[in-house]
């Protein structure tokens, strides 16, 4: 909602095990950014936003 270029899916790992394998998810929460970058664990919201910025290389 903060930025129209951002979309966010919540994916239940137990229901989509093929995606867990595809993205090498070994713990949750695990966030996949644009199919390639992983952010493992939960972070305070500002740090999380900064990790996203870092991942997409703005």
């Amino acid at each position: 909602m903060a930025n129209d270029t951002i979309s966010a899916d919540m994916v239940s790992g137990s229901e989509f095990p093929f995606l867990v394998v595809k993205y090498n998810v070994s713990g949750v929460p695990h966030t996949v950014v644009n199919e390639e970058h992983g952010i493992v664990g939960s972070l305070p919201e500002k740090e999380f936003a900064e990790e996203i910025v870092k991942a997409v290389g703005v």
């Binding site: 966010a8 919540m10 994916v11 998810v25 949750v28 996949v32 919201e45 703005v58």
Partner: peptide, 19 residues
């Protein structure tokens, strides 16, 4: 946080895996 997010100008697709 909004300020950080506003700086993004490329498409971003997040997939958050949950338990």
């Amino acid at each position: 946080t909004l300020k950080v997010l506003a700086s993004i100008d490329k498409p971003v697709h997040l997939q958050v895996f949950i338990s």
